[in-house]
Design a protein around this nucleic acid. Structure first.
Ligand SMILES: [Mn+2]
Ligand SMILES: [Mn+2]
Ligand SMILES: [Mn+2]
Ligand SMILES: [Mn+2]
Lengths: 218, 218
DNA sequence: ATTAAAATTTAGACAAATCTAAAAATAGGT
DNA sequence: ACCTATTTTTAGATTTGTCTAAATTTTAAT
């Protein structure tokens, strides 16, 4: 597997899709920051290797083997992110770039030992689940903060947008995973929210709220 | 810098050489496990980037900039090797391959944090010195065991051959860095040695002795 | 000084991954 | 059903790093 093939598989996985709703060439091209014609070439190559199903003009979907491979890359990416944060004091907005490189290191033993060193974490620094060796991962019952009703309480468990600017904004406003949240008020005008978080009260825009995942209290 | 360029620089560094005694095309080709014609192409490219001095038919030597780059790759390689042994319980015969990949990860912060986590080690698991950020490294006063005279004592501080088979052989015979060594007898016939090591007595061939570095006691 | 052997370079080709421009297929609106 | 806009594919070129085979230069022996 080349690095490029691995990146395509990862992106196809993240775009979702299935046999019945394949991923389009353009969607992949946009995520890969490449041209559709390049995607077509790669689609053929991956199909040749039985990693994707591909029919001309009909888009691409992962085979079982392709899914397995994608999950193993994602596993490595997220474990390295945890390593960087927990063991090397990286902040959560710095880890993605480095993990993009580290995810391609080829050594089963290495990633298993990292997993062990970290005591088998189930989620990465952004709240995304870490697949196990056999490709299974926790699906956490979570919803966007923007979809919660007034008065409801929960715990912040993840971010939808994990770009550095958004993560830095959260840091600046002392919003972090694990914090408790209660929705106090939702403005009709702009859908901004007034929330209580760890004793404080703050106002956040609809855009922020629609990029924060919350686990609702029972 | 591409991965290939980095590997060429590293190998040119390891081959020694200087402005007056440049490294030959064939020597590089052999180490890189590639063809001389490929080396010529790369020599031109590296010369273009001012990383080596290159004159047709006259071989290659590193510029100051090339030396700096080579040392930074070697620093990364050796720090990762220490990390694998100390933090992930790899054995010293398993680390080289993985370090060959990890040495190409591009992140200053990452390698500095690894350095810090390891408490700034000065030598790698094979006894080779780890260059500092600014490219300086300890030159240890050491000699080959095969060059020691009868009766002299020392401490085993490094291996010349760090291939897995040799390292495994040392493990099997409980020869490790840090162990004390005294030369008891040298056979005229085959130059094999009888040595005392950590209380035991053992016999080792000339070939083994000429791949073990010892720091002589004053 | 000649000459043969060895080392090195050049020329031309190839695979991987990408691009641009043109052609083909599909999808959506009327 | 038809036409047009969009999507996707093809064809051909480019870059990087490699190769083989042929040509050139160096070296070392006579
Ligand atoms: Mn990430
Ligand atoms: Mn990647
Ligand atoms: Mn090594
Ligand atoms: Mn390398």
């Amino acid at each position: 597997m080349t690095r490029s093939e691995e990146n395509y598989l990862k992106i196809i996985f993240h775009l979702g899709g299935s046999d019945s709703t394949p991923i389009t060439t353009n969607a992949i091209a946009e995520q890969m920051e490449t041209k559709p014609s390049s995607v077509t070439d790669m689609a053929k190559k991956l199909a040749e290797k039985n990693l994707v199903k591909y029919k001309r003009y009909q888009g691409v979907s992962l085979t079982e083997q392709g899914t397995k491979t994608a999950l193993s890359i994602i596993r490595k990416h997220r474990l390295w992110e945890v390593f960087l944060v927990k063991k090397l004091d990286f902040s959560w907005d710095e880890v993605h770039e480095v993990a993009e490189q580290l995810e391609h290191i080829k050594s089963e033993k290495l990633i298993d030992k990292i997993d062990e060193l970290l005591e088998f974490p189930k989620f990465d620094p952004h709240g995304d689940p870490i697949p196990s060796k056999d490709g299974k991962f926790m699906v956490r019952d979570k919803q966007l903060l923007s979809e919660m009703s007034i008065g409801s309480k929960g715990v912040c468990v993840g971010v939808k947008d994990s770009s550095a600017p958004f993560l830095k904004f959260l840091d600046k406003n002392k919003i972090a995973l694990g914090h408790t949240i209660q929705v106090l008020e939702i403005e009709d005008f702009d859908h901004s929210l007034r929330i209580a978080m760890e004793g404080r009260e703050l106002r956040i825009s609809h855009q922020i709220a629609s990029n924060l995942y919350v686990k609702k209290n029972e």
